[in-house]
């Protein structure tokens, strides 16, 4: 199979590059575009740390062949960071000690961003459901759930 020319918009910037067949969105982001916030944890869609947005939906970018989303709009954690300071979710994670090793944090924040975009005033259950595909091995989740609820309150 030949390589494909991929044109996607990533964090507002139009990107054009060549991808070998089977290249995942995660691989393209990290290795081709140098956007390393999304992490490769399990590589099989069970840990969630590669979570990004494709056309506004939270997806596991390790499961998405990039050639199948040609023309799409992609957003990564880098794209949620304002020019100055931190986004409300980033600030809430920082203030609420919602990170330890930090490996799950990019996926957690992107899952939460997708939730708050469609549901600005989520219940605790909504938050739990939104991050149920994201594994954290350090925190016990409670501080993450609280941080997302605090960010929702701060922005609504």
């Amino acid at each position: 199979m030949p390589s494909s020319v991929i044109e996607i918009t990533v964090n507002g910037s139009e990107e054009e590059f060549i991808a070998k067949p089977g290249t995942t969105l995660l691989g393209a982001l990290r290795d081709t575009l140098g956007l390393t916030a999304a992490k490769r944890g399990c590589g099989v869609g069970t840990c969630g740390t590669c979570t990004c947005h494709v056309d506004g939906e939270a997806v596991m970018s390790c499961l998405v062949p990039v050639e199948t989303i040609n023309g799409a709009t992609v957003r990564t954690l880098e794209g949620t960071t304002p020019a100055d300071g931190l986004s409300p979710l980033q600030q809430a994670f920082l203030d609420n000690f919602a990170t330890q090793c930090g490996f799950c944090t990019p996926g957690m924040i992107m899952a939460a961003e997708a939730l708050l975009a469609v549901n600005p005033a989520p219940t605790r259950e909504d938050v739990v459901t939104a991050i149920s595909g994201n594994v954290c091995r350090c925190t016990g989740y409670e501080s993450i759930i609280e941080a997302i609820l605090i960010a929702a309150e701060a922005t609504s």
Binding site: G41, C42, T129, S132, N134, V135, G140, Y141, E142, I145
Partner: peptide
Amino acid sequence: RDFEEYLMPGPADNAKM
């Protein structure tokens, strides 16, 4: 064999701490 089959509590299984 992988995280999908390795059981761990998720965010819905929290105990009150």
